Simulated scan of single mutants.
Amino acid sequence: MNSIKQHFFLLLPLLALLFSLESFLFISRAIVSKEDKLLQNYSIVIASKKKLSLEFIRQNIPETASFESIDPGFILDKIRANMNNEDFENIKKDLSFYYTLKLDSFPSQARLSSIESTLGKIPGIERTESFAKTHNQAYRLLFLIKFSIQTFALILGLLSILLMIDQIRIWHFEHNKRMQIMGYLGAGMWMKNSFLFKGAIYDAIIAAVVVSVGFLYFSTTNAAKEMLGALEIGQEIFSFGLDFGILLGASIGICMLCVLIAIMLQRKV
């Protein structure tokens, strides 16, 4: 029973740490997926007195994904009924060329401002409409969510590591006599502390499995499906094989680091 309690007090902060890491991976993928969705419906409208080409625009805006002309026929059809042929032909001659510019990545506010400035300097371009207000609102919201989850994961991770180090130091203190005897018999540092490393590795594997299974179960619930549906995000944000590898590697690495730190701190005492 005492052994179970010892492992529980190491597993608890480790589970919290891995939960924050998996949440960060999950939210990061969700944000990337949402940015892709927004990008599919986002374009910059350009009015120009001169004809423009995709190659020319791409030279100025490297992240250009597509550049297509807009047929002004639907506008002309609406005004033609109220005009005579001569006025209509004059307007048709003076009508600007209209284009839609799509990007291959969701731009930041600074980059969008730079793109507008670059387009404004191209001869012939009269006006650009980037819908900056709507774009910036979406970008700020996504940035706030990303920043919040990063901050949460960092704080929770640091607190978890400190608690883990304290628990490993307790293990070290409880087996201090045993390690002293092993030292007298000529055992090295790794041999004397082998039980610490083994215990930490076992807990690391258990924690990685528990968190992975927990998120796997969550992905099958109605709450998860409703959330993804509301955000218009698909199941591709779940990647359990990759995540389990990341969690297991991070869990073992952090546990080994905590053991080494606890050993070094114990030596200084």
Rank of each mutant, 00 (worst) to 15 (best):
S33F: 09
G186S: 03
A110G: 02
L158Y: 02
Q6Y: 03
L15D: 07
S48F: 04
I125R: 05
P62I: 08
S96F: 08
Y99V: 07
I149Q: 01
I31R: 00
I31W: 02
F240H: 08
I246H: 03
F56P: 00
F238G: 03
L257S: 11
F173L: 10
F56I: 14
P123V: 00
V213L: 15
L25S: 09
W190T: 15
S114V: 05
N176K: 15
G120R: 00
S212N: 14
I46P: 03
A262L: 09
E68R: 13
D203G: 14
F67W: 11
I201K: 05
F74C: 02
Q180L: 15
S194P: 01
G186Y: 07
L228P: 04
I57A: 04
H7C: 04
I122N: 00
L156F: 08
M256K: 03
K78D: 04
R127S: 10
M189P: 05
H175Q: 14
L260I: 13
T100M: 08
K5T: 14
S194Y: 07
N2V: 08
N136T: 13
N84K: 03
Y139D: 08
M164Y: 02
R127Q: 12
M227C: 00
T221M: 02
F26T: 06
E22D: 11
I57F: 04
R140C: 00
L216Q: 03
N193T: 04
I125D: 03
S219E: 05
L25Y: 02
K5S: 13
A250H: 01
T100A: 12
L39P: 03
G214T: 10
I206A: 10
L144V: 11
F56L: 14
I206S: 07
F143G: 05
K5D: 11
I155G: 12
R140T: 00
Q150F: 04
T151K: 02
N41G: 15
Y42Q: 12
V45M: 10
K133D: 13
L196K: 08
A132H: 09
K146S: 14
S20M: 10
S48C: 09
H175C: 04
W171H: 13
D243C: 12
I46S: 02
I252T: 13
A138I: 04
I115S: 06
I237K: 08
G73F: 08
C255P: 02
N82C: 01
G157R: 06
G229P: 00
E236N: 15
Y217K: 05
E86S: 05
L11T: 10
V45W: 08
L54H: 10
L12A: 15
